[in-house]
Amino acid sequence: MMRRGRSVPEPEHHDAGLQPERTSLAWSRTTLAMIVATAMFLRWFPEYGWFTGTLVAVALCTALGIYITQQLRYRRAVSGIANERIHADAAAAAWVAGSVVVLGALGLFAVLFLALD
């Protein structure tokens, strides 16, 4: 996984199912999917720069947030597997689901209320 500083030891686990890696990759795929979905809105950038800007900002904040917390999340998963106990990350789930709902709502607003060609 990502290594930022040499002083921090890399966490290890012995889970044959590679659960922390799979979960971390699932988060990465979600980040990519969010960026791709947002890229669709760029079609309206010439006409509605402010609107597209808001939308891209929402998606990029979430994508960046996921990226920044990836190492923390991986370490949490590794220590969870090691200790046979992990706390469910309700805040992250609510945050990502909320961002997707906001993206959908902004898309709906664009389709229904902006004069698109």
Binding site: E12, H13, R76, V78, S79, N83, H87, D89
Partner: peptide
């Protein structure tokens, strides 16, 4: 499962709790 470097358990967040 055994591990070479178990970390201390983090506390649950207020939202999750």
């Amino acid at each position: 499962m055994p591990t070479s470097s178990p970390s201390p358990r983090p506390e649950r967040g207020k939202f999750a709790a």
